[in-house]
């Protein structure tokens, strides 16, 4: 096709479009869509033996929750920034900082358990009770994230989707951590962090199938 004819065709098909809000605004929109589900699942599924007072006085629990929230916020901000052409790519590195703090806090917890309890403090056991709430918490933020990312430009699809998955995993962990107040850090390290890593890896693998230039696929 002749380039002038293509321009004419594109111009003729140009309808008004709604501009994408800034990445930080989209981050807040995503959070506003996800938090009610998170709160509802926690409220519905929370075991009755969990003492909320003990939870809010547990310094480690509070630090982990804060770090998870910051990881979710920065990862979603980076994901939304990555689908805007020309946006500063340094934003992609920001989630690494809270992620590293989360990792360090879990590592330090494992160390303490090991010092206090020896190898008993590092025992792993499957915890399938966590799976249904994890799925319930994750569905809406995941769908919202994919739909919102697809409205942008798929410049680095794997990274965008992996960051989106990290944001969803961090948010889901924030909710799930409530069920694990006082749990051994190794359980959280293995199941929660491991789950987040697997989710982000799988999402990155599928990135090009989820985010792609539609005209090139047509």
């Amino acid at each position: 096709m002749d380039t002038n004819a293509l321009i004419q065709e594109l111009a003729d098909s140009a309808v008004p479009v709604r501009r994408l809000p800034a990445p930080w605004v989209r981050m807040l929109i995503w959070l506003a869509l996800s938090v009610p589900i998170l709160a509802a699942v926690i409220w519905l599924v929370m075991p009755s033996d969990i003492n909320p007072v003990a939870a809010i006085t547990d310094r480690r629990f509070l630090i982990e929750e804060a770090v998870l929230l910051v990881t979710a916020l920065t990862a979603s901000l980076a994901a939304f920034g990555s689908v805007v052409p020309g946006y500063d790519r340094r934003i992609l590195l920001i989630p690494l900082l809270p992620f590293a703090v989360w990792l360090a806090s879990l590592g330090e917890g494992c160390w303490r358990n090991w010092v206090a309890l020896g190898t008993n403090g590092l025992t792993l056991r499957p915890d399938w009770d966590c799976l249904p709430p994890a799925i319930l918490i994750g569905i809406v933020p995941s769908i919202a994230m994919v739909v919102m990312l697809r409205r942008g430009a798929p410049l680095i699809p794997r990274t965008s989707i992996a960051l989106g998955a990290l944001a969803v995993a961090a948010l889901a962990n924030l909710g799930l951590r409530v069920f694990h107040v006082g749990d051994a850090s190794v359980m959280v390290l293995f199941w929660h962090l491991g789950g987040a890593a697997v989710l982000a890896g799988l999402a990155a693998f599928a990135g090009r199938r989820v985010l792609y230039w539609r005209h090139a696929a047509a």
């Binding site: 293509l6 140009a14 709604r18 501009r19 052409p85 409205r151 410049l155 005209h215 090139a216």
Partner: peptide, 24 residues
């Protein structure tokens, strides 16, 4: 041109145009 057309909603007019275009 087709990619620019597809991504045109991602342009923020308060930001410079050419860096947006060159990224595409």
């Amino acid at each position: 041109l087709l990619s620019l057309h597809e991504a045109r909603r991602s342009y923020d007019p308060t930001r410079p145009f050419l860096p947006w275009l060159m990224a595409i």
